[in-house]
Amino acid sequence: MGGVIRELFEAHYDFVWRSARRLGVPAEAVDDAAQEVFLIASRKLPQILPGKERAFLFGVTARIASDARRAGSRRPEVREDDAPPSAIDHAEDPAPRPDEVAERQRARAQLDEVIGSLEPDLRSVFVLFELEGMTMSEIASVLELPQGTVASRLRRARELFQEKVRRILTRDGLAGVP
């Protein structure tokens, strides 16, 4: 399987990893989840249509993220600083101030909470548009949906996201967030 799976891996590993994390896989489990995606893909290479590799991988990732979210809800909470460091932890500011780290972790936990509250259909569209930076046309291709469906899901996802953020603002009193 060397050549094909290697190409798939090199072209899409980062995308799969990011998607897994953003779709709700806990930080400490993302490496495993991304690996699982490619192990599954390696078994199903003959079924992956040319040009649909990314759609296939994202579909598997979404499914695995959904399973991981359910498993995570039954698992003792792992602190963010227990998680293995991602590349950015090394690449960014080598010594961020403790309050910056705490703030970033809090923001990330809140984002996970908000995105996690979205229905899976909406979550995928939201993540691909707002975080992955895809166009609606690209999202339609990855999710194999009509563009109109993508647009309506995105609109609904954004409404819910904004509503949830407002609730967090009220709950946590973060009026002064920069």
């Binding site: 799976i5 993302v30 991602s86």
Partner: peptide, 25 residues
């Protein structure tokens, strides 16, 4: 602020290498 907190998501090199090894590539 919340969305920016996810922009830095990226796998570490160790993560990439471990996954590649598990795939036999």
């Amino acid at each position: 602020s919340l969305l920016r907190s996810a922009l830095s998501d990226a796998p570490s090199e160790a993560s990439r290498q471990a996954a590649a090894a598990a795939l036999g590539i």
